[in-house]
Structures are given as structure tokens and as C-alpha cells.
């Protein structure tokens, strides 16, 4: 960091000229003091204003709606916690939570492990390394809808590529949408395909900040590549790992587009005939925008928020404790 320590000649008073006329600038001075005091707030204000309008207000308003019997025509009776009481006894809600958590595990764990491996490979001296590094970022540029449509065809029961390959090794065709395990696998595959490269790049950036002499010392001490990876690389990029775990958890809890496109027909929002792959955000959408039970939908939305918060804290504690 080079800091310019030379005097700013253009604006500071040139030496030898008349002394600054302090008394005359009383008002100006006061304005400039107010400015100094408040302009930093002004600069950070856009974020907070936007957050208040698009983040905080909806959050609070949703909580308010969730305490009412609220349909399309507007506020109905205040029902207190009735919506939450019904929600806790609603098997479809718990089913959707179960599905979401299942797909979260299936999508996050392999994804981050693959990203770690990919990042350490990209951290080597390779031919065309920039090309490869940019290449892993391509899936994230693809639109979710396109990913959903293409993978839905790959996992099609009658004409899908996966069933075709399984057929080559004499495995019976799988009806991917009919079971939990199969639909979760198909959807997790979409998520993994799309996000692995993104996480790999975050890890790669963190890896490049690790001092080279650590590896040199380890090599001198006789540590192999794999030992170096687990004992030097991983501990040194822990903040990046914590970040990706939390981000993946948040994204996983809000999983919506992939399973929606994977589902078929006019009632795709139900996520399969027996709600095999309906996520909790799909359930929220179904209740609020298909059944027009806004109160109930808002209660589901708040439960998603609480779940994410709980999972975030758990993530944070686990990753911090193992430090």
C-alpha cells in the first residue's frame, strides 16, 4: 500500500499567504462540522434504507399477516397463534421440512467436498489455468430454469439419459419422481452441478493467500500432498469454508425453482404425487398463492426464517468449536 504523504498543494493554504480568516466562516464552519459528523451515515444509508424497505418491513409485516386469517381480499380476523398451532400439526409442512433438510444434506456435503478438491487442483501449476478456472464458473452463468429443464429430461422415466445408461448395465428404469430418494438425488444433482464451481473459486481465492513457505516447510518435514492439504490448506481457509457452508445452507433452505421445474403437470407445486420432493418454500408458495391462505403462508415463511436462523447458529458453533 503506497500512501501519498505529500501535502495537497492544490487545496491547502500556500505558505506565506494571509492567515486563514477563521472568525468570518462561523456558519460555513458549522455546516462543515455537521457534514463531517453526518455524511458517513448518509453514505451507509442507502443500504439500510433499502434493507428496511425490502428486508425488515416485509419480515415484520409477514409476522403481522401470519397472526390473521388473511385471504386475498385482505385482513380477516385476528387469530393470534392459530396458524402456527395448525402448522405444527400439519403433516404436509413437516414433510416439506424433512424433504428440504434431506436435499440440503445431499446437495451441500458432496458439493463442498468436491469444491475443495477442485480448488486444490486448480491451485496447481497447470497448463491453461485461467481457462480452467473460468470454466468451472460456467454453470453458475446458466439460468436455473435451463438447468431444471435439461436435468428434468436427463432424469426422465421413459426417455432420460440416466435410465438409458442404467439400462446398459441391466438396471431397471427408475421412475425418478415417484420416490423420495430418487427425486432428491436428481434435484441435488442439479444444485451440485450449478454451485460446485462457484464454491471452488471462493476456496481457490482463499488458498492463494496461504503463504508458500508453509508448504515448503511441510515438504522439508516430509509431509505428503494429502497431509499438506488437510493440515495446512483446510485450516487456513476455514473462514471461506464457514462462509460457503452458511451460504449453501441458506440457499438450500430456500430451494424452490429446481424442484418446481422437476415436478410436472399443472399441480407441479405439490412436488410429486405424494409430495415426495416438495420443499418448504414450495409449500409456502402453494399455501399463499395457490390456496390464497396468506395468513398460513406467512406462518410457513416465518418458520423458514427461524429454521435458517437455527441452522445458521448451529453451523457457526460447529465450525467455530472445531477450530
Amino acid at each position: 500500500m503506497a500512501t501519498d504523504l505529500r501535502p495537497r498543494t492544490a487545496t491547502s493554504t500556500p505558505p506565506g499567504s494571509a492567515p486563514p480568516e477563521r472568525p468570518r466562516t462561523g456558519l460555513k464552519d458549522r455546516i462543515s462540522r455537521v457534514e463531517v459528523r453526518w455524511s458517513p451515515y448518509l453514505f451507509v444509508a442507502p443500504f439500510f434504507v433499502i434493507f428496511a424497505v425490502f428486508g425488515l418491513f416485509p419480515l415484520v409485516y409477514t409476522a403481522w399477516v401470519s397472526l390473521h386469517d388473511w385471504d386475498i381480499t385482505g385482513a380477516g380476523a385476528f387469530v393470534g397463534l392459530d396458524n402456527y398451532v395448525t402448522l405444527f400439526a400439519d403433516p404436509d409442512f413437516w414433510n416439506s421440512v424433512h424433504n428440504t433438510l434431506g436435499m440440503l444434506v445431499l446437495a451441500t456435503v458432496p458439493q463442498l467436498l468436491m469444491a475443495l478438491v477442485l480448488a486444490s487442483l486448480l491451485n496447481q501449476k497447470l497448463r491453461g489455468v485461467t481457462f480452467l478456472r473460468m470454466g468451472v464458473l460456467l454453470p453458475i452463468v446458466t439460468s436455473v430454469a435451463a438447468v431444471g429443464i435439461v436435468f428434468s429430461q436427463i432424469f426422465d422415466r421413459d426417455a432420460g439419459m440416466v435410465n438409458g445408461l442404467l439400462g446398459l448395465v441391466n438396471v431397471d428404469a427408475v421412475d425418478w419422481r415417484a420416490d423420495k430418494w430418487s427425486s432428491w438425488t436428481a434435484i441435488a444433482t442439479m444444485v451440485n452441478w450449478r454451485w460446485t464451481g462457484y464454491n471452488a473459486l471462493i476456496y481457490l481465492a482463499a488458498m492463494q493467500a496461504i503463504p508458500k513457505d508453509l508448504y515448503e516447510a511441510a515438504t522439508v518435514d516430509g509431509a505428503g500432498r494429502i497431509r499438506q492439504f488437510w493440515s495446512i490448506t483446510v485450516p487456513n481457509i476455514r473462514p471461506a469454508i464457514v462462509f460457503t457452508v452458511i451460504m449453501s445452507t441458506i440457499a438450500g433452505m430456500q430451494l424452490f425453482t429446481e424442484p418446481l421445474i422437476f415436478g410436472q403437470g399443472s399441480f407441479a407445486i405439490s412436488g410429486g404425487s405424494l409430495r415426495q420432493f416438495q420443499t418448504v418454500s414450495m409449500y409456502m408458495f402453494e399455501k399463499a398463492f395457490r390456496d390464497f391462505d396468506y395468513g398460513y403462508g406467512s406462518a410457513v415463511a416465518w418458520m423458514i426464517f427461524l429454521l435458517i436462523t437455527v441452522l445458521g447458529v448451529v453451523n457457526f458453533l460447529i465450525t467455530r468449536r472445531s477450530k
Partner: peptide, 19 residues
């Protein structure tokens, strides 16, 4: 329409051999 969707799903589950 909403009830029709649910009955349709139940029929589909029979077709899939799940119920």
C-alpha cells in the same frame, strides 16, 4: 379446482404403484 388437484395426485400415486 384445488380439490381436483389433490384427487389427481392420489390417482397418480396409484399409477406409480406408491399407494
Amino acid at each position: 379446482n384445488a380439490i381436483g388437484d389433490r384427487v389427481g395426485n392420489a390417482l397418480l400415486a396409484v399409477e406409480q404403484g406408491k399407494l
